Amino acid sequence: MAIDFRSDTVTRPSKAMLDFMIQAPVGDDVYEEDPTVNELEKYTAEHFGFEAGLYCSSGTQTNQIALKVHTQPGDEIICHEESHIYRYEGGGMMINSQASPRFIRGNNGRIIPELLQDQINPDDIHYPVTKLVSLEDTANRGGGAVYDFNDILKIKDFCTQNNLKLHLDGARVFNALAVNQCDPKVYGKPFDSISICLSKGLGAPVGSVLLGSKDFIHKARRVRKYLGGGMRQAGIIAAGGLYALKNNVHRLIEDHQHASLLEKHFKTVTWVAEVLPVTTNIVVLVLKDATKQNHYIAALKAEGILVTAFGKGRIRFVTHLNISSDDIQKVCQLKLEV
């Protein structure tokens, strides 16, 4: 079987997780009667100090619902220029919310607080109304970079001073917490909403949870419904997420250690110009010869190693719970033709 580094979304549920899913009690979640979904939403919300949660099919859906609830058509959303909500969600910000993005540059996918100054539009009919700031932690396009929590607090202060809401695309937030060692309730406090993926490093097969106030989640539930996201006996898949939260969070540090080993190795490889700083489970190689990107991807595939292109002249490896120490050793011992 190939060693699949393309993403941490490729993880497969363990037998213990599958057994837990099969035994999960279920009901009709649209009627809010699925006990496993209700438990998952309550557990996740309480973990981060929020009033309520909403289980959805994907992180894209939780993000897009949040943007829709926080904004009105014609509003503006401040986000990093490399953010997932803009680059990888099919134009959903513009389609679903009819909102426009205002791009901020920063440091490895993270918004630098000082760059937010003077980014609020004046009260002028010629401009969209600035309404929301969205952060991504960890930052996918930044090689899994983690925010300094003090910077998040500074961004929150900016939002408070300017009457803006603050959303977190926390697709890999547990990877961030494994690094910054911040209490989840303390970490969650600055945000008005958080999207959490269960199907990446945590290893569940399906789903994400959106967190917010009771009123926010009440509105979000309506948006989920008209977007076609209302699920019925969803407890079967929600149970995978519940199992992941209770059993797979502690082991994320192993993925980070594996990624660090890859970083160390690829810094010595002649065809690699640079490795983006590795903090969590994402390793991004910058090639010396960008025109050979497909060549190296194909050469790795021929050796049973799957990776993905990550922009011009870049290759991404993502470690996860189905990547073993032996898999890492195989990559580090591999010699590719330049």
Rank of each mutant, 00 (worst) to 15 (best):
Ala2Gly: 01
Ala2Trp: 07
Ala2Lys: 06
Asp4Asn: 05
Val10Trp: 07
Leu18Trp: 00
Met21Phe: 09
Met21Lys: 11
Ala24Gly: 06
Val26Leu: 13
Tyr31Ala: 13
Glu32Ile: 00
Glu33Pro: 00
Pro35Val: 01
His47Asp: 02
Glu51Pro: 06
Glu51Val: 05
Tyr55Thr: 04
Ser58Glu: 01
Ser58Cys: 03
Asn63Leu: 07
Ala66Tyr: 08
Ala66Leu: 10
Val69Lys: 05
Pro73Leu: 03
Tyr88Ser: 15
Gly92Gln: 01
Gly92Lys: 00
Gly92His: 09
Met94Pro: 06
Met94Glu: 06
Asn96Ile: 09
Gln98Ala: 08
Arg102Met: 10
Asn108Pro: 10
Arg110Ser: 12
Pro113Tyr: 09
Leu115Cys: 13
Ile125Trp: 01
Leu132His: 08
Val133Met: 12
Val133Gly: 13
Ser134Arg: 04
Leu135Trp: 02
Ala139Asp: 05
Gly143Pro: 01
Gly144Tyr: 09
Val146Arg: 07
Tyr147Asn: 06
Asp148Trp: 00
Asn150Met: 05
Asp151Pro: 08
Ile152Arg: 09
Leu153Trp: 02
Ile155Gly: 04
Lys156Met: 10
Asp157Trp: 02
Asp157Cys: 10
Phe158Ser: 14
Phe158Leu: 08
Gln161Leu: 11
Asn163Phe: 11
Lys165Ala: 15
Leu168Met: 04
Gly170Tyr: 01
Val173Asp: 03
Asn175Phe: 09
Val179Thr: 01
Val186Gln: 09
Lys189Ser: 15
Ile196Asp: 02
Leu198Trp: 08
Lys200Trp: 02
Lys200Ser: 15
Leu202Ile: 01
Gly203Arg: 03
Gly203Asp: 00
Gly203Phe: 02
Ser208Arg: 05
Leu211Arg: 01
Ile217Leu: 06
His218Trp: 00
Arg222Ile: 12
Leu227Tyr: 04
Gly228Met: 07
Ala244Arg: 04
Ile253Lys: 12
Asp255Gly: 13
Asp255Met: 06
Ala259His: 05
Glu263His: 05
His265Pro: 05
Val272Ile: 13
Val275Gln: 03
Leu276Asn: 07
Val278Pro: 09
Thr279Leu: 13
Ile282Val: 14
Ile282Pro: 00
Leu287Glu: 07
Leu287Thr: 08
Ala290Met: 15
Thr291Gln: 15
Asn294Cys: 08
Thr308Ala: 14
Thr308Tyr: 09
Phe310Lys: 02
Gly313Arg: 13
Gly313Pro: 14
Gly313Lys: 06
Ile315Tyr: 11
Leu321Lys: 15
Leu321Ala: 15
Leu321Ile: 03
Asn322Tyr: 06
Ile323Asp: 09
Ser324Lys: 05
Ser325Lys: 14
Gln329Asp: 09
Val331Trp: 02
Gln333Gly: 14
Lys335Arg: 14
Glu337Ala: 07
Val338Asn: 15
